[in-house]
Simulated scan of single mutants.
Amino acid sequence: MNVDAVLPRDAIPSVDDPSFGRDYVGDPDDEVVVVDGAAVGGTAGVDSGDGGSEEAPPPARAYPIRILSYHEIVNDAVGGRPIAVTWCPICWSAAVYDRTVGGRMLTFGTSGKLADDALVMYDRATGTEWRQTTGRAISGELEGERLRTLAAPVTTWKRFAAEHPDGVVLQPVRGGESGSGRSARDAYDMRPYERYARSGEFGLYGMRGEGRRRTWDREDVDAKAVVLGIERGDEAAGYPVDHVEAAGGVVTDTVGGLDVVVFAADGRTGVFEDPGFAFETREGTVRGDGATWDPTTGRSSDGRRLDRVPARRLFAFAWQDAHGPDSFVGT
């Protein structure tokens, strides 16, 4: 693992006091990371109508990639559960972690370092450095510890708004300042990142033209193929989305003793516990056990819901950097 210092610590500022609303400054097809309170185990007290209260999951939250690209880390809490919503623009890596380690709540910032071109975070309590693509501490007091990955799919803002009518979205923290003449949309311009995503280069060199120019020597999967990665114990399995689509949109597997099903249909993806019945995709729709199923939410047309499996989404080169060339499934 190569660790390089690229920027000063916190040169890319994390969001430590996030605010949420109903309106979004970007486009309908912009991607967002979704945190569903029910999926991460967060709860919020609601009036039960008899003077008491009952626990209900808080509204789903959307964290736009447009905003994350300029901050990379959002320290948040959902239903009382501390979480870190993280994004590495170089690795195109979305991962949400529980911020509690050994009973201590951590707050994360950007270290200014890259580990094999992946964001290195640090926690402000101990200064320990953490690799974003794995959630592992790579140096410092907590070296060897691992953050718990939480379920957080990626979808478009348009789909999020339709699927979560009560949902809220992270609000911008820059742009629109008095006298600046710059809108929030301008402050979070995605064009540089989109150019990188489309280019044939990858890594820091591909993003900024700096550092070593990397090569890719395999033909079964592209360096920038989007991968859904699962880690359970010492096992890791990465599913290139285009391979899942080529397999009919549904792949079943066992990772760390857990039976899983991976969906990729109509531009939507998801990883869930395998319920034990067969699925198939027809005309972009997942069907199984007499119902249709949403590939991202795991909800069925008859009210059932699949149990989500925590996974991360990232480019293939970053998954290989973290887990080796034999960690892909279906290649």
Rank of each mutant, 00 (worst) to 15 (best):
Y122P: 08
W157M: 14
T100P: 01
G181H: 07
V251R: 14
R146M: 08
E273R: 15
T285I: 15
T43C: 02
Y70R: 10
V25Y: 02
D76Q: 07
L314E: 14
S199M: 13
A197G: 06
T128V: 01
H71N: 11
V74Y: 06
Y24Q: 01
V260Y: 05
P89E: 01
D222G: 15
G330Y: 08
G52E: 13
T134E: 06
A291Y: 01
S93Y: 04
R104I: 11
D186M: 15
E210N: 00
G324R: 13
L258M: 11
E235H: 02
M190L: 08
Y24F: 15
G248K: 04
V101T: 03
P240D: 08
L314H: 06
N2L: 12
P28F: 05
W130G: 03
D98L: 10
D186F: 13
M105R: 14
D29M: 13
A115L: 09
T110E: 09
T331D: 13
W216S: 00
P8G: 10
A161E: 14
Y70D: 05
A39W: 10
R131G: 02
F277P: 11
W92R: 13
L204Y: 11
V74E: 12
D321V: 03
E55Q: 12
L147A: 05
A265I: 04
L204G: 00
T110L: 13
A39R: 15
A125G: 06
D222Y: 05
T86I: 10
T43A: 11
A44C: 07
T149G: 03
Y97M: 04
G270A: 09
D116T: 04
D289W: 09
P82I: 02
F277E: 14
K158T: 06
A237R: 14
S53D: 12
E245C: 00
D242P: 04
V286W: 10
A225H: 07
A77H: 08
V34T: 03
I90C: 02
G52Q: 05
T43D: 10
D50I: 09
P325S: 10
P240H: 07
S69A: 15
G41N: 02
S327G: 12
I73T: 06
Y63E: 05
S139T: 15
G206V: 06
V33L: 14
T126Y: 04
G200E: 11
G256D: 03
W157Y: 15
V227L: 05
Y97E: 01
P275H: 10
D274W: 11
P18E: 05
T156I: 04
R195L: 15
I83N: 00
S178M: 12
V329A: 09
D23R: 13
T134I: 05
A247W: 01
G42D: 02
Y188R: 06
L106V: 05
V74A: 08
R99M: 04
D4M: 12
Y24V: 01
A56E: 14
R212P: 03
A125V: 14
F20S: 06
V46I: 14
A197Y: 15
D16G: 15
G330Q: 11
E245L: 10
D234Q: 07
Y122R: 11
G330L: 05
A278K: 12
G26E: 04
T100H: 00
I65L: 15
G203A: 03
G233Y: 07
P153F: 09
G102R: 08
V154E: 01
A237P: 00
G206C: 06
G45R: 14
V120L: 07
A278C: 01
R124S: 08
L147V: 08
M121V: 00
